[in-house]
């Protein structure tokens, strides 16, 4: 097992136990599944964000992309069940295209991804506002909302099944050639390029995966809560918090997608616990800020202790193995 997973799984376990302590019902399968259902969109978004961060970039556009997707879906479906399927396909296409644009601007035009995706965030937010006049129109069909709201069979929610399937898919993807080139790119883009990796394309693919994850998260969130013009607000930071909490190093090349998704569950359990304790609202942002800073500090401290191979400083590791 990947050692970088230990801290996040430890924190997650502590939080889950604390929740169960405050709310003994939490261990009931339906209640726990409801928790997973609520966490699924963030976990998928964190997986998407993981690809981008592992490749050495950021994607800040996913929050407003989610809002745009939900608002577009409501307007186009307008309560008509027959429109559900092509609209879902369209949402995935929009997600992928947004990722493609983010990736192209970052890799071809040399705009740092922080700025490129921040720009995309503002563009999407403004476009949604202009298009809706601030009040979303239309309605989602029950068929669309099924994925975020209903159960497949018995007590098993659609969201949890989708999370599991896509989570396994993400793990397999990271074990494939793509995963290796992605890590190599994030670790040292120049070395990867010299080794024949098409760095631009790898990064662009990571942005496309992030855009797709936002599209799926939009389907789940829209299904869960219904139409809202603020559904995705703050989701980009929640996803980045989840990823760094999952032991993924900003700057790329380190950490696992399982860690990122575990980080999302940890963020969601923390919010659940705070809410159960009667601490909520504005404090969530403060807590999120603290987590980001603390997690990044922790990860970079670990990185200093165990310098990564390929960044030129191999002494630490050599020294370490001598001690063993």
């Amino acid at each position: 097992m990947n050692r970088s997973l230990v801290p996040v799984l430890g924190v997650l376990a502590v939080l889950l136990i604390a929740i169960a302590f405050v709310n003994p019902n939490f261990v009931d399968p339906p209640v726990f599944l409801a928790f997973l259902k609520r966490a699924a969109p963030l976990a998928l978004l964190a997986a998407g964000q993981y690809f981008v961060i592992a490749s050495g970039e950021f994607d800040l556009s996913v929050g407003s992309l989610i809002t745009a997707e939900v608002v577009i879906a409501a307007r186009l479906i307008n309560g008509d069940a027959d429109a559900t399927w092509w609209v879902i396909v369209l949402l995935l296409v929009i997600g992928a295209l947004t990722g493609l644009v983010n990736g192209t601007i970052t890799t071809r035009f040399g705009v740092p991804s922080f700025i490129a995706t921040l720009g995309m965030l503002l563009i999407l937010e403004g476009a949604v506002f202009l298009w809706t006049d601030g009040a979303p129109r239309g309605a989602l069909s029950d068929e669309f909302r099924m994925f975020g709201r209903n159960n497949v069979v018995g007590q098993i929610p659609w969201s949890v099944v989708i999370l599991l399937l896509l989570g396994v898919g993400a793990v397999l993807l990271m074990r494939s050639d793509f995963g290796r080139t992605l890590m190599a790119t994030g670790d040292n883009a120049r070395a990867a390029a010299l080794a024949g990796v098409r760095v631009s394309w790898v990064r662009t693919t990571a942005f496309i995966l992030s855009g797709l994850s936002a599209a799926v998260a939009a389907v789940l969130l829209g299904g869960f809560g219904g139409v809202s013009a603020q559904v995705g607000r703050g989701m980009e930071f929640a996803a980045i918090t989840a990823v760094v909490l999952g032991g993924v190093a900003l700057g790329g090349g380190r950490g696992s997608v399982v860690g990122a998704m575990a980080g999302a569950l940890t963020v969601e359990s923390l919010f659940t616990l705070l809410n159960l304790l009667g601490v909520s609202g504005a404090l969530e942002y403060a807590v999120q800020g603290l987590i980001i800073i603390a997690a990044v500090a922790f990860t970079s401290r670990r990185t200093d202790e165990h310098p990564r191979p390929g960044r030129g400083i191999r002494r630490g590791r050599a020294h370490h193995s001598v001690l063993k």
Binding site: A34, R38, G225, G226, S228, R233, L276
Partner: peptide, 19 residues
């Protein structure tokens, strides 16, 4: 406080129902 967000509202009510 719900921030006017349906998803958050739903989560809050679910939490209270559990509690």
């Amino acid at each position: 406080f719900t921030d006017g967000d349906p998803a958050k509202t739903k989560s809050i009510v679910s939490d209270y129902l559990q509690r």
